[in-house]
Design a protein around this nucleic acid. Structure first.
Length: 195
DNA sequence: CTAATGATGAACT
DNA sequence: GTTCATCATTAGG
């Protein structure tokens, strides 16, 4: 009796602005050598090719190439020299877009997350894009892998649940700062604490 | 509020 | 090949 199932490939072929809210409530599964870690996605942001804030804005490079592949891939990059950020690529091939996963509600492997993060406070485990990558030990070596099967998977709930979704401006960017492309589950205590 | 920290990509020679 | 500004963040005070 699985609560979550792997979505069909078409699920990821939507444009990023459509996929971002669709990923809320989905389960992110991470298989590590030390064990399984899972969490429910509670906060996302979309980044498209025509968006000055997007890595894809300047065209394809050695770093951002997964954004230009068919949806359903991992795109992981390093920011501020320290933090990894995990994105789900979306759209068709040659369309540079992705959805940034910003926060998770921890489900399984919580002991492992605490160990990876070296903290104990539950709400600090995955409440930010850099935090959740550390908790799930996701780094750039995983950029470009398929999310359909493998070390990182996205699964959708079997039974559709009503989610109260809030749409706001994105966080921590200066370009195109006004675009409402951040999506989060209303009243979730697991989202990042930025405005 | 601010320092930490390093890959990235553009603009140069 | 080299230089340099930029960066979708976090932790700590």
């Amino acid at each position: 009796m699985n609560e979550y199932i792997s979505p069909p490939e078409e699920f990821f072929l939507k444009d990023a602005v459509t996929l971002a809210p669709a990923l809320l409530g989905c389960l992110l599964r991470r298989d590590t050598p030390d064990g399984l870690i899972t969490g429910i996605i509670v906060e996302t942001e979309s980044y498209t090719e025509d968006d000055p804030a997007s890595h894809a804005f300047g065209g394809r490079t050695d770093r951002n190439w997964p954004m230009f592949e068919k949806g359903g891939m991992a795109y992981v990059y390093l920011i501020y020299g320290i933090h990894n950020c995990f994105n789900v690529t979306s759209g068709m091939e040659n369309s540079g877009e992705a959805v940034l996963i910003r926060a998770l509600q921890p489900v399984e492997g919580i002991g492992l997350m605490k160990k990876n993060r070296m903290i104990g406070r539950m709400t600090d485990l995955c409440s930010g894009p850099g935090k959740l990558c550390q908790a799930l030990s996701i780094n750039r070596s995983l950029s470009g892998i398929s999310l359909m099967n493998g070390e990182i998977q996205i699964q959708m709930p079997c039974f559709s649940e009503e989610l109260d979704i809030v749409r706001t401006k994105r966080v921590g960017i200066t370009k195109a700062a006004g675009l409402p492309r951040r999506f989060l589950i209303k009243n979730s205590k697991w989202v990042s604490n930025r405005a």
